[in-house]
Design a protein around this nucleic acid. Structure first.
Lengths: 93, 93
DNA sequence: TTAATTTGGTTTATATTGTAAACTAGTTTA
DNA sequence: TAAACTAGTTTACAATATAAACCAAATTAA
């Protein structure tokens, strides 16, 4: 069987990484907006993607406020590509 | 957001229903074979799909042995179609 | 000036879900 | 008649997801 990467087979993480695949980078606020997730959930799922090195997270300050930016890594791109292949195959697409 | 039907967004259930979408019906043994799942897991996931009326399960006897057949329902077909649309959209396909 | 609210998150408690091991019930084979 | 096989189901435990609660600092309102 063509196992689906369990890290990517979760709606919010898939939404995050698919979005990051279409942009150079996105900050926490932007991801909140496009995914419509809660902050807690978004934070947790970003961490998991980061732990797997599927995304790179950069924390800086924008003026006086913290600012978290995320970008997909080559590892993440490959994983997403593999996931897309696998699910297409599963769904006969 | 285009929420993914949580009942279908699970690998084994997705494998079951996608396969059933391509055949008229399939028995437990065939589903075991194509999904490579354990019997316990397959049994549980079949029940969940049945509870949602996404598939119809028919229990008969084949000779002296029980024989369980599964077929996708119109409800299941629509749900699968919707899932495919939603995930395509999510994955920018 | 100090209390309340907002920004930008993280932690964690709970609920939900997934899964394989253990079980059931009967059949066949040795 | 005991062992092994067929065809599943039940269930106990592990893993996961998620929102509520929290945190630190900044801003605004009274």
């Amino acid at each position: 069987m063509n196992k689906l990467d369990p890290l990517l087979h979760q709606e919010l993480r898939l939404a995050i990484i698919s979005f990051l695949a279409t942009v150079e980078r996105a900050d926490f606020k932007k991801l909140l907006e496009v995914t419509e997730a809660t902050k807690g959930n978004l934070s947790v799922q970003i961490s998991k993607l980061q732990d797997a090195k599927y995304i790179k997270v950069t924390k800086t300050f924008k003026g006086k406020y913290p600012h978290t930016q995320c970008a997909i890594t080559p590892t993440g791109s490959k994983a997403l590509e593999a996931y897309v292949m696998a699910i297409k195959n599963l769904l006969n697409l």
